[in-house]
Design a protein around this nucleic acid. Structure first.
Lengths: 127, 127
DNA sequence: TTTATATTTGCAACTTAGTTGCAGTAACAA
DNA sequence: TTGTTACTGCAACTAAGTTGCAAATATAAA
């Protein structure tokens, strides 16, 4: 159903994603808002922000859910199917601003795809 | 360290993957071998079979781990980086025998990639 | 400004996938 | 047959995410 009321929780979470250019893991958000927001609230607000096309989510290599700001998405139409990159050194994940062309797959109707890349990021390569 | 001894557990699990052409979720294996094998054993044997290049694994859309037989992999060299397809209707997952070309990503060293497709499979499209 | 109502929140308890330590069992080489 | 060491099962644990419900609060209407 998406966000209906502008509450403290919504404002706080939106603010984090406004300031952060990279993706953020739910577990990280729960830690950051430890005494401020309940984890149930965090999960629920994120879910609604995704429905509204404001955030999008993906699963990292350990199965943990990550969220990031959408650039071209609108409600109920997540066209934002860029790949995501997760660094093996620092663990951070980010969106890659590229479009990957996928072939047609016979006998299957592909609705959604998720490409996850693993390796060393910019910062960690320097060290 | 991989498989060293040919035990009952190894034989049972290998047999399932021999007969099954599709991927199998760990949760499914735990159910199938409910009274026969302990879940700890299942996790441990699968891990070793993957090290040996006999199986490979990937995460489905709900973060659950799936295993499937490798076709071209050898120990410590998982070249088997084909995409995987998971059906939204029946929930089953399978390997797709295609190679997807990925571009070079600047400022990053990509070591591994995982492409997961979601949609309706052959069988479910017919219904 | 006050009131009514429906959304949102926090809490606690729960579910489920996967892990760990350890003691007993079994594969296999000598 | 025996000794060594890998493997297994058990129980207890960890961690991510979910659920139900009562209390709190945003917002529209009076």
């Amino acid at each position: 159903m998406g966000i209906i009321r502008k509450t403290k929780s919504v404002a706080l979470l939106l603010d984090v994603f406004e300031k952060e250019s990279k993706a953020i893991a739910t577990t990280d958000l729960i830690k950051r808002f430890d005494t401020v927001l309940n984890k149930t609230t965090i999960y629920r607000v994120l879910e609604k922000l995704e429905e509204d096309g404001i955030l999008h989510s993906f699963l990292g290599f350990n199965g943990i859910k990550w969220y990031a700001k959408c650039k071209q998405c609108v409600k109920d139409n997540h066209t934002d199917t860029h790949p995501h990159f997760q660094c093996t050194s620092c663990g951070k994940a980010e969106c890659l601003d590229v479009t990957i062309a996928l072939p047609e797959f016979p006998d299957r109707e592909v609705v959604f795809s998720q490409l996850l890349l693993k390796g060393k990021c910019n910062t960690c390569l320097a060290n």
